[in-house]
Amino acid sequence: MSATTITTRINGREQTLRVDNAELLLDLLRDRGLTGAKPSCEMEVCGACTVQLDGLPVSACTTLAVELDGRSVETVEHLDAGGELHPVQQAFLERSALQCGFCTPGMVMTAKALLESNPQPTRDEVTHWLEGSICRCTGYEPIVDAVLTAAQKMAA
C-alpha cells in the first residue's frame, strides 16, 4: 500500500501519522478508538459519519485520511473535553432528540457546525442544514428543537 506521512490535529492534539493513501478518514478515526462517527450508508447521504474538518462538516466515510494533512479534525468525543457537555449535547438530552443514538454523533457535529457558521438560525435554516442527515427514530422534530435550544444556550 502506498502511504503518506501527514501532520494533523485530531481533537486538538497535533500528531504526525503515516497513513495509507486509500485509507478513509472514518477508518482512521475508528481504528484509533474514536467510534463516535458511525458508518451507515457509506455514500455521503445519511450523515452518521459526520465530523468537522477545519470546522466544516464532512462525510468521514468518503474523505481520504490523507486529507487531514495540515488540517484539523474534530469528532464528537472532543466536545466534552473540558468536562462539560457542549450546549448542543445538553440540548439533545433536554429535548429528547435521540433514541437509538446511532445518528446522534453525526447530528451533534452537524448541528455544532451550523451554529458556528450561523449562531442564530431560523427553524427553516436548521431544517435545510439537517436535510442531509438521516434519523430513522425520532421524526426529526425533537432534533430541530434541540438545535434551536442550543442556539439560545450559546447566545446566553
Binding site: 467510534t35 463516535g36 462517527a37 458508518p39 469528532t75 468525543e77 466536545l79 457537555l85 438530552l93
Partner: peptide, 19 residues
C-alpha cells in the same frame, strides 16, 4: 425522566456491536 443512555449517546461513547 432523562434517558439513562442519553449522556453516552450524545458523547459518542455508547457502544454498539459495530464499535
Amino acid at each position: 425522566v432523562p434517558r439513562v443512555d442519553g449522556p453516552a449517546k450524545v458523547t459518542g461513547r455508547a457502544r454498539y456491536a459495530l464499535d
